[in-house]
Design a binder for these strands. Sequence first.
DNA 1: CAAGTATATGAGTCTATGCGCATACAAAGT
DNA 2: ACTTTGTATGCGCATAGACTCATATACTTG
Lengths: 110, 110
Amino acid sequence: MAKKSPLSDEALEHVARRFAVLAEPMRLRLLQALFAGEMNVNALVEATGGTQANISRHLQTLTQAHVLARRKEGLQVFYAIADPSIFKLCELVCGSLEKQFTKNAGAFSR
Amino acid sequence: MAKKSPLSDEALEHVARRFAVLAEPMRLRLLQALFAGEMNVNALVEATGGTQANISRHLQTLTQAHVLARRKEGLQVFYAIADPSIFKLCELVCGSLEKQFTKNAGAFSR
DNA sequence: CAAGTATATGAGTCTATGCGCATACAAAGT
DNA sequence: ACTTTGTATGCGCATAGACTCATATACTTG
């Protein structure tokens, strides 16, 4: 396994796309809601405060990126987090941002 | 430390922005080049094959996001990775994408 | 101070995408 | 078959941002 070989352009685009999928506050809210477990669309609409159309689109984006899984049951559609790495990704970013904030807070308090 | 409290809208926007910064192939190439260590702008231009203007802009974006650190030395400006969490972030995403690919590969080969 | 080198930036174009509105589609019950 | 309920989607608008070209700025050297 070549560990230090530079990623191909195609690979980089895939990685970039992955990050782009997570680069929307509304989608992050959806993920945050789904951290608790599987939910249907209506529940997600209520949980996030978005419009149904918009939520549906974001769910589509997340599903196409294989971040979410879709399960249809009668009239309702249930979504759930399909990629467990999402948890760690969010944790990492949050941790990193917290560090930044505390640094800035220090600068202010002086 | 409230562990399960939902992030505020403001916090979510910060997280989203962080992801957005990493959502460009060119910036990922810059980061990949900088994994080896500090480099000046010209070296980065050559390493990535971009134009000087464009590279400079991306470097600005990364620096403002506190992902990179800037050090001026005479005429040249050196950039280096300032946030170590970047490494793990990229590893996580790459690993997750690899899994997806091997899954798809399996589906094709059958 | 003039000229050269390394980097940054203003202005303009072009593409991508988030959002809202209306409507279409799908499944279930009457 | 018709209606109701839950979800998806076509379309248009508005905004963000990536890229280029030309030029500005900062520093060094002659």
